[in-house]
């Protein structure tokens, strides 16, 4: 993953996305402590207020929670919830578009399933 933040999208969103990715791929296990706002700011060379906004976004969503005087932690069940969200997102972004594109090309659902199997075998 690039260290650089993309300057054409809000950075706090990108911070939140990176934390989510780390939770999903296990780099940040549940109940583990998340780096502080200032650590994020220093690491990515971004404004601490922006980093805080990204972290707080996840607190509002219940992915992270705050322990007074200690810091931020990954909530239990956060990974499962994020996976669920990602799956939903995957469905909207890839499956729905794939089907609409397939319809244009006259591909039936059965043919589509075949194609997916073929793609999977190639992936292995």
């Amino acid at each position: 993953m690039s260290l650089q933040m993309d300057d054409s999208r809000p950075i706090f969103v990108q911070i939140a996305e990176r934390i989510e990715n780390d939770i999903i791929d296990g780099a940040m296990p549940e109940e583990s402590q998340v780096p502080s706002t200032n650590q994020f700011a220093a690491f990515y060379q971004i404004n601490p207020a922006t980093a805080a906004k990204g972290v707080n976004l996840l607190v509002d969503l219940g992915i992270l929670y705050k322990r007074r005087g200690i810091g931020m932690f990954v909530a239990t069940g956060a990974k499962a919830r994020l996976m669920e969200q990602r799956k939903e997102h995957f469905f909207e972004q890839y499956v729905v578009t794939m089907i609409s594109e397939a319809k244009k090309l006259g591909i039936t659902v059965d043919q589509l399933t075949d194609m997916i199997r073929r793609g999977e075998s190639r992936h292995e």
Binding site: M5, D7, I11, T37, N38, A41, A42, Y44, Q45, I46, N47, P48, A49, T50
Partner: peptide, 27 residues
């Protein structure tokens, strides 16, 4: 700047025509 600002918050104004480097530091 970021380290010290985190420990000792204060108002900082960065004036520059080189925007790309500093833009991420700005609130």
């Amino acid at each position: 700047l970021l380290d010290d600002y985190a420990e000792n918050p204060r108002t900082i104004v960065l004036s520059t025509h080189l925007i790309d480097e500093v833009s991420k530091l700005l609130e």
